[in-house]
Nucleic acid binder design. Structure first.
Length: 593
RNA sequence: GAUCACGUAGCUCAGUCGGAUAGAGCAACUGCCUUCUAAGCAGUCGGCCACAGGUUCGAAUCCUGUCGUGAUCACCA
């Protein structure tokens, strides 16, 4: 059974744009949750496209459409009004009552009521996080993870088959830097009192520090520029040799590499666990990069790629050379990326969309990658999407390891720690550490998801530390409030059939239900725009509405049993609805706060 | 220099692929706890939607230009 919005759309299409696809996509029919319903009605139909047909007759055509709707949907529609550019539909209370009954029938199952599972065959692969294995996850990863995880969860809600995929960049020069530091500055001794990934991070930063020192010395000594000084750097040579050793699997390179990676992965898993993020699939570039190398060599034979004078392999993109293989035969970022994609094609065979959640600094990288796939006539060309988001800036600049100084933190673990301390001090009643952490995690996640991925985040600890107003805590608090009411009254004892909802239901109760009916539109918009922030905003509006209702109306302590039943039912719907969406957003659910 | 984003209230952000009177939160100031969780609710204050043109019945939204901020510009990953 189609829902009302879809039915209205059908009538509209039949009447005005049966054959015009473009206009069909522009039809704008929405529940009115933002303006006075007694004036603007329950559903607003934007009739601009009618202007397209005949400007002069817009009123006539509007009335025609209104009459048709009233006739066809007389069960629910009792009135329509033409106002400005809108055809406003006024609904009977019965419509909302039926919706409430539907919720009751499904035992308050949000998924069943709003989305009936379909499309299970459609497979979506979502790659997110993609860390390097040389340092802990930082705030850039945090944004990435939260966007990726939320989008993945939403695809899941609709009923698609979703694969959350993590690609770990576990090979390359950056790892070798940690390896050298481990050998040279730490005598191959692991510090056990530090979380694994942080320890490896320390190795990496130690290397960078020493490296910069050396470069400075050389450039001063010989009076040359820094980038030229690299040629004479001893540490740089050591790293390059380490990479060659690693590729040849010589010496202790591999064993130390394995040891370091193990530490890092252990550290990652703790952070992921805290964030409550799980992956269905983990890929390692060390295992896929050879596939890419072979692919490029084959392309060279097919004359899709070319050999440069210095024997490096390149690809022409917009008349510019893009290097695909170094002249010494070792592979690059793009090489690995191709390899990983080939691996995925082999493993999953068919998928509808592969979404790369990667920062916007790599827009060009993905353009090149997709072009390479297209030019090689691989059929998946249309099934690749780069979900790019803006950077997380710290002190005005993009977060990069070289910006880290003492007393500055950019790691997820540190942020959680700081937030925990803050919540602990701000909180009125004493709470267990577990609850404190769940509150701070909710706050952090909400604060990051809240912002449109297109916009950059200038990270400021004071923004995250907010616990009033539009925050994760507000959502958690709303949930806990309603939960405590329902806990005091066992819903199962209520006999629904005795309640005459039609007489009891009032404006404010209807407006809550109407808000929930908008959910489908919201989800559609999120999928269309790849923007999870839409969901946080929506959940916030719902929370505000229910808090307002809570404060103005008594729910448990009223004499009229039937009225109480109705309000409890609405509470139960909202409770499950919040639960459902908090799960999607990954905000911890607390029964008490 | 080129390319791509973004510029909305003092601050942090919404704004439905052009439509009804530009919306929230924070901060500041008022009210509201002997009654279901006051981490809340109700209200006041605050806007030349960066600037200038253009497109049309109609622009915060589309186009062009200018300014500002950031990212990228290829053998780092």
């Amino acid at each position: 059974m189609k829902d009302l919005i879809e039915q209205l759309k059908d009538i509209y299409i039949k009447k005005f744009c049966k054959y015009n696809k473009e206009q069909r996509n522009n039809i704008n029919i929405l529940y009115n949750n933002y303006k006075d319903n007694s004036i603007y009605g329950d559903i607003n139909i934007n009739i601009n496209s009618i202007f397209f047909l005949k400007k002069k007759n817009k009123n006539k055509l509007g009335i025609k459409l209104g009459n048709k709707i009233k006739k066809k949907l007389k069960k629910y529609v009792y009135k329509y009004e033409l106002k400005s550019n809108y055809l406003n539909i006024f609904l009977k209370k019965k419509y909302y009552i039926n919706k409430i009954k539907k919720f009751i029938k499904s035992n308050f199952n949000i998924q069943k009521t709003i989305y009936n599972k379909k499309n299970k065959k459609k497979r979506y692969i979502i790659e997110f996080s993609s860390p390097n294995s040389n340092k802990p996850l930082h705030l850039g990863h945090l944004r990435n993870i939260l966007i990726g995880n939320t989008i993945a969860n939403i695809y899941n809600v609709i009923g698609f088959n979703v694969i959350k995929s993590q690609l770990i960049n576990d090979r390359g020069i950056h790892i070798c830097k940690s390896i050298i530091a481990f050998k040279k500055f730490f005598n191959k001794k692991i510090k056990l009192n530090i979380k694994g990934d942080h320890f490896v991070g320390i190795l990496y930063f130690k290397f960078e520090k020493e490296f910069q020192k050396e470069i400075k010395l050389i450039s001063k000594k010989y009076n040359i520029k820094k980038n030229q000084a690299i040629k004479y750097s001893r540490l740089s040579k050591l790293v390059n040799n380490e990479l060659i050793n690693w590729e040849k699997k010589k010496g202790e390179s591999i064993s130390i590499w394995k040891k370091i990676n193990k530490l890092v992965y252990k550290g990652f898993s703790i952070t992921y666990k805290k964030l409550n993020v799980k992956f269905d699939d983990i890929l390692y570039e060390s295992k896929t990069y050879l596939l890419g190398k072979n692919f490029i060599l084959e392309g060279l034979k097919k004359k899709i790629f070319f050999l440069d004078k210095d024997k490096s392999v390149y690809f022409l993109y917009k008349k510019k050379k893009i290097i695909l293989l170094r002249n010494n035969g070792t592979s690059l970022y793009i090489t690995q990326e191709i390899g990983t994609l080939l691996y995925r094609i082999k493993k999953y065979k068919k998928f509808n969309l592969l979404i790369y959640v990667v920062g916007n600094e790599q827009i060009n990288h993905f353009k090149v990658l997709f072009e390479i796939i297209k030019i090689n006539k691989l059929l998946i060309y249309n099934k690749l999407y780069h979900l790019s988001y803006n950077t997380v800036n710290f002190l005005g600049k993009k977060i990069k390891s070289r910006y880290i100084k003492k007393n500055e933190f950019i790691f997820i673990d540190d942020l959680i720690c700081i937030m925990n301390n803050y919540v602990k001090h701000k909180i009125k009643k004493k709470k267990s550490d577990k609850i404190v952490e769940q509150i701070s995690l909710g706050a952090i996640k909400y604060q990051f998801i809240k912002i449109n991925p297109k916009k950059k985040i200038d990270f400021n600890i004071n923004n995250v530390l907010k616990i009033k107003g539009n925050t994760g805590i507000y959502i958690q608090y709303t949930y806990a409030r309603i939960y405590s009411i329902l806990k005091k009254n066992n819903l199962k004892k209520i006999k629904f059939y005795k309640t005459n909802f039609l007489k009891l239901i009032k404006k404010n109760e209807i407006s809550i239900i109407r808000l929930i009916l908008e959910y489908k539109t919201i989800i559609d918009r999120i999928i269309k725009k790849y923007d999870p922030s839409i969901l946080t905003n929506y959940i916030y509006i719902i929370s505000k509405k229910i808090n307002n209702f809570y404060q103005k109306n008594k729910i448990l302590n009223i004499k009229n049993i039937y009225k109480r039943n109705l309000r409890l039912i609405i509470c139960k719907i909202i409770l499950n609805f919040l639960y459902f969406n908090m799960k999607i957003l990954g905000i911890p659910i607390l029964k008490k706060i």
